[in-house]
Simulated assay, not measured.
Amino acid sequence: MISDVVVIVYDGVSPFELGVVCEAWGVDRTDMGLPTFDLAVVTPEPGPVRTSMGFELQVHHGLDRVRSADLVVVPAVPRNAPVPPEVLDALRESHERGARVMSVCSGAFVLGEAGLLDGRRCTAHWMQTDELAARFPRAEVVPEVLYVEDERVLTSAGTAAGIDASLYLWREEFGAAAASLVARRMVVPPQREGGQAQFIDNPVPQCDGETLGPVLTWIVEHLQEELPVEELAARSAMSPRTFARRFRAETGTTPHAWITAQRVHRAEQLLEQTDRSVDQIAADVGFLNAATLRHHLRRVRGLSPQQYRRRFRTAPRRETVQAPELEAVQTARRKTVEAPEPETVQAGA
């Protein structure tokens, strides 16, 4: 369980990516019933550290602080500058003793220099993935994703993807409800749908009509129903083919994969917050039976519904929990976890 977080910085560190990590792990959210963390920013030689924007940070902790950390993070740093050898040693030692190691944007190059990307899937900003692959040929670079974890090495894409990766760890460690609360506090989606490709290929979707926002919200509010693409397209005043194309442009995935992700997310909330049986929850979220829910939850989380409930159980709020409108909007861009599937979505698909 993560309780001690360390962020390694040195000259050239990007203040935004550093701020993302501090926001995700350094803010006191006990008023929301969430855990707090012992967070420290460290550097090889305590003292002033010059950022990429020209101003300085006064860092008081040295690398000895890394020895106790459960999570060690490297934010964006100059990818072509020499990495202090003691930083590389600290990263290797942290991973060897069982800590998670995470990078944001170009921080992946530091993990590569430490040898932590060898034989592992990893990513970075889409403008840097070719260089990452060339410099570390033993790494399996996945350019299209927002983040990826492989054997306790978590790498994330550019800038705000550090938020996505941090929320992923919140879900893994403390459950979907806790991650949603953190996301609400940060005013971001708990999990964005799609990956870097949607921003590379279509930075500004070319839309002739209204955004899909209203129909996405409607879907989240009607997950228990059958949701054929033809009906969703009609609600959006589009042909099914145009709707499917627009849907991928705006969410980065297919209607089927997106709706399945919403159903799994809603099932996670109900498992955490209610005493309803697995069969009841499966029906509540639009899966035909418990076996279908079990299949999808195990694929996404590696846990059965019973295992998930034991791990993340919270006190029941009420027998039926209706997701508030704000949360419905915030959950509108969950990450893609599978390749595109058939375009007709039936309850239980």
Results as ranks from 00 to 15, higher is better:
P75W: 09
V9K: 07
W25T: 12
W25P: 14
A76P: 10
S14H: 08
G47W: 07
D31I: 10
P46M: 04
D38G: 11
S68Y: 00
L18K: 13
A69S: 00
G19M: 11
V83C: 13
D31C: 15
V7D: 09
T51Q: 10
M53W: 04
V6W: 00
A24E: 10
S14V: 07
V66M: 00
L63G: 00
P15T: 02
V13R: 07
L71C: 01
G47C: 12
V49S: 11
A40P: 07
S52E: 12
P78L: 01
Q58G: 12
V66H: 01
F37L: 06
Y10Q: 01
A76T: 12
Y10D: 02
T30E: 14
V20P: 11
P78H: 07
V5P: 12
G12W: 07
V20K: 07
R29Q: 12
V7A: 08
G19Q: 11
R65V: 00
D38V: 11
D64G: 04
V20I: 15
G26Y: 09
R79N: 08
C22E: 13
V27Y: 07
V59A: 06
G19L: 09
S68N: 02
L34D: 10
P75H: 03
F16C: 13
E23M: 10
N80D: 15
V9N: 01
I8V: 08
A69K: 00
F37T: 09
L57S: 09
T30V: 04
N80I: 11
E17D: 14
D38S: 04
F16H: 02
F55T: 09
A76F: 10
F55S: 04
G12L: 04
